[in-house]
Design a protein around this nucleic acid. Sequence first.
DNA 1: GATTAAACGAGACGGTACGTCGGGTCTTGAA
DNA 2: TTCAAGACCCGACGTACCGTCTCGTTTAATC
Lengths: 195, 195, 195, 195
Amino acid sequence: MSETEVRRRPGGRSARVRAAVLDATVELLRAHGLEGLKVGDVAERAGVHETSIYRRWRNRENLLIDALLAASEVLRVPDTGRVRDDLIAYATDLAAFLATPTGHALEHTLAIAGDDPVMRQARDRYWAYRSERSQQMITRAVARGELPDTVDPRLVIEMLVSPVHFRVLLTREEIEDGMPARVVDALLAGISPVR
Amino acid sequence: MSETEVRRRPGGRSARVRAAVLDATVELLRAHGLEGLKVGDVAERAGVHETSIYRRWRNRENLLIDALLAASEVLRVPDTGRVRDDLIAYATDLAAFLATPTGHALEHTLAIAGDDPVMRQARDRYWAYRSERSQQMITRAVARGELPDTVDPRLVIEMLVSPVHFRVLLTREEIEDGMPARVVDALLAGISPVR
Amino acid sequence: MSETEVRRRPGGRSARVRAAVLDATVELLRAHGLEGLKVGDVAERAGVHETSIYRRWRNRENLLIDALLAASEVLRVPDTGRVRDDLIAYATDLAAFLATPTGHALEHTLAIAGDDPVMRQARDRYWAYRSERSQQMITRAVARGELPDTVDPRLVIEMLVSPVHFRVLLTREEIEDGMPARVVDALLAGISPVR
Amino acid sequence: MSETEVRRRPGGRSARVRAAVLDATVELLRAHGLEGLKVGDVAERAGVHETSIYRRWRNRENLLIDALLAASEVLRVPDTGRVRDDLIAYATDLAAFLATPTGHALEHTLAIAGDDPVMRQARDRYWAYRSERSQQMITRAVARGELPDTVDPRLVIEMLVSPVHFRVLLTREEIEDGMPARVVDALLAGISPVR
DNA sequence: GATTAAACGAGACGGTACGTCGGGTCTTGAA
DNA sequence: TTCAAGACCCGACGTACCGTCTCGTTTAATC
């Protein structure tokens, strides 16, 4: 999904350069963080000339986005047969991913990213991809009869993942072990006792 | 709450300089956004020498944080007597604030901010302040008997505000009119019909 | 002799930039003196970006030295066939050169210059060049039989030129017309009447 | 001779401050060299407020000159009864002094110093003092009949001391042991064998 | 297998902003 | 009223990194 350009000659020099650069980018992100990522360093580590990077990605942001989206495919959507377990597992996985330097960097990049067409498109593509996949947990639960068909999958997913992002990105507080479960339970049962 | 230093001579030159600089910072943020804020411009607009800014705030980030926190005191906590109304009003207000350039800039700055002591302290102070005040909505509801005393005010507030921040900061999707109400309802009643 | 780098493409942009910057430097030195020479001004006058100057020369001093050494090639070594005339002519020329703003600035720069490797090398190269050439006046005289082969060319040249430098640099007294001749005569004949 | 101002209350606070500052200046010069001398450091070391220094000396240069001239009184004029010995001893002493950090700094300061009235006067006073005293070696020799009364004392002294200054200030070459003697001999006897 | 166009290597340069440094002035509280 | 303390003004220096430009060289697809 992070393919920005048409690959004319797969496996040729171009492809090698591209792969080396994206790898180096992620690697350096992990090591020095977002601010510490310099195009020149990426070039050096990739064994490629800086000019070649600018030629292909035009600027630092494009490179970043391309590299990070490629690195974000690790998130898997569980399918245990029970919503509660699915949601807890997903939130836990997400928290773990966001705790890695790569995950952290991805978040920051998305948060910082401007609104030029390129970034906008990249961002939209990323969230569309994630929404679509994670909402399957809800639609499957509805199909199984676990949840009423009146639920709004998007809202549910948002209320599930946003507290995790919130802590990672804004308050920077740790996500303690039971947190995902408590979020899921509050979400499923509500906080008022009776109606 | 954004007071970083002891005011030795309140009203003296130092205080005047400080105020002028913070005002200019917020003003320019509103005008040119986060990326467009240059320390040199702030200095010029504040009628102060650039060096004086660096002397006091050390770098751009510290200046930003100080200015933004000062500008974030507008958020009020409602007290209507009914949780649902309180929470909806608060979330709506928050969404409105985050839609302003100042609010946007505040979010971004907090998200970008590094982990040096200065920023960490500023961030912690900010969230402590906001948490403490907003959780009053929950504790009041518990006192009134509207909510059971088993609810975790912190979790509730997080689940209330994080979807708003999430959209503003990450997906950049609009917050439609009914959204706060739907979040509150899901939170209060839960999404599973029966247990 | 002030060539610090290998010219890869002689006459290319690099060479043009280099020449323009050195010219501008000497020109501004002439105009505003040593203290008044700002790197930014040089850049502007040379039609070159300030960064380019810092990239190549690293700091103001290196630029100065390079420019001044380039400007000091005007000193010619006379060859009249008679030592006395040669020495007087040389000392007179030297005095004239040192009286120009450029000469003045050269002196000051050499006197001020620190002992970092770059400056040290520049200084050594300069004096080696000047020594070697000026001592030819003595060796030629010895070859002609005008002077005994026991004379130390280096000492003689030092005793010839140092009074000139001394006045220009330290006492700042004028070098009156007959001064070089009197120095040369004292040097050749000695000041004691008999031996 | 380095008294720039009238001492109103010798021994009073003013005098103490003045002495402490000048001492600190020379001390720091010795330690960090000319470039490394900061007014703020001097103030701190002297246990005096920076403002007090600026009040009295007005700027860094004046302070420097005042301190250095005070430190240059160590040069003594020998009187052995024989010109050759006198001159050699004097030149040797001079070389030794100029080799000390203080001597070095004095030279540099004089060489760098601008032409504003203050510096001009300080410089003139310094050289007048040194000239007057050192030329006594020549006039005494003339009185003794050792030298003809046609010699120009000023020229002789210049030709004696300038090679020393030359090496210290410009070429930065070491002054080897026999050098003063060879200069003196060349000066007394001349370098041409016979006329 | 020779040709040719795209991509790459190399390196200087333009440009913008950041942050530093240090000399020197000015305000203010306190003695 | 004077003085110590310290913030401030001012103007430079030097740094860092982004992104551009030019030219020579390699590579890989095409003839």
